[in-house]
Amino acid sequence: MNLNLTRRRFIKGVIASGAAATTTGVWVAANGASRPAGAVERMIRININGQVRTVDVAPQETLASTLRYKLGLTGTKLGCNRGECGACTVLVDDVSTYACSVLTHSVKNGRVETVEGLEAADGTLHPVQQAFVEELSPQCGYCTPGQIMAAVGLLRENPSPTREEARMGLSGNICRCGSYDSYLDGVMRAAQIG
């Protein structure tokens, strides 16, 4: 989890847009219809799961809001909406990123991958998804998409992690059910499946 990068991007983006961000007001800002004078253009094209999508994005809108409320990609979850839990983790240019803490405008030139983009067209699960099923890694499942995306990002960078490296790789993702052990089992199995 490159937390510093996403926080910095978020703050810079907010400053650029002239919007005020608060921990409780992000949804409000994200879904707003108003537009600060002189703000960036709203209609943008963004590569989501390999498809270029055109979407109307408010200047201060977070990626999580765009994904969930504009594009209907509700697999990306919001647990805290302030960069604490990792439930909203997606990949931006292969880097796992808290979608609640990055502005959509700041990633419009990047490649965004969400949990919905992992499954093959024929329904074959991604190795991480398959491994998580086989290990029964999820409990309540709310953090699972974030855990999966963090694991996919980790394995792209390090296809054969040690369990300790996997632990570090997923340490930005909270699981209140406490299924960490089973998630790590899933990551290690996924590394074997390849």
Partner: peptide, 15 residues
């Protein structure tokens, strides 16, 4: 429900 949890298809109230 596990498949829905790993694909993000399963729906929670806010979805």
């Amino acid at each position: 429900d596990v498949n829905g949890k790993v694909t993000g298809r399963i729906k929670y109230a806010e979805d």
